[in-house]
């Protein structure tokens, strides 16, 4: 079958730069992370849940009645995934890994890179700990990654 002639197309691109506010809760979280290598959450004074990432309100009690608490830089690996593609779609020889970590002392957690291990070393439910950057800058990558920890 002869290939039919394609309709014409035009090239385009959208390139827009942004500067996003991290908000009141994000400001405190990232400042403490940068200046003291601390992971902070907000505790609802009504239901007692500790939110990480922090928020200035509790979505369940629907109040703005929160206090700041420090949570531990370690926790439990809820699940993990390895990817054989970079986020811009390139195929990789060695996989990189992400995990969801329930931080001790919180009812939430972080999704972050998992390193110093291979996929076969990881298990759902195992303890992991944060490794911090030497020269922090006030963003989520001030935590370099999580790695398997001793109990």
């Amino acid at each position: 079958m002869a290939k039919k002639k394609a309709v014409l197309s035009i090239d385009g691109e959208i390139q827009i730069n942004y500067k996003w506010s991290v908000g009141k809760a994000g400001d405190r979280f990232f400042t403490e992370l940068r200046d003291h290598k601390k992971i902070m959450g907000t505790k609802c004074r009504q239901c007692g849940r500790v939110l990480v990432p922090p928020r200035i309100f509790c979505e369940e009690c629907f109040v703005e009645d929160m206090e700041w608490v420090e949570v531990e830089p370690r926790g439990t690996l809820l699940t993990f995934g390895e990817s054989y593609f970079s986020t811009d779609g390139k195929r990789l020889k060695e996989p990189w890994m992400l995990g969801i970590v329930r931080l001790k002392g919180s009812d939430g957690g972080l999704i972050h890179l998992i390193s110093e291990s291979r996929p076969e070393d990881l298990k759902i439910g195992m303890p992991v700990e944060a490794v911090f950057k030497n020269k922090p800058e006030g963003n989520i990558m001030d935590i370099l990654y999580f790695r398997p920890a001793n109990n």
């Binding site: 990232f30 809820l78 699940t79 995934g81 990817s83 986020t87 992400l98 969801i100 999704i111 989520i140």
Partner: peptide, 26 residues
């Protein structure tokens, strides 16, 4: 994805499915 907490990590759809599917199979 969330611009401050998630996007910088490089999360994409295949790996998020991996996270979810692993928990489901487990």
């Amino acid at each position: 994805y969330d611009e401050a907490f998630v996007r910088p990590i490089g999360l994409n759809v295949p790996i998020q499915c991996g996270l979810e599917a692993r928990a489901y199979l487990h």
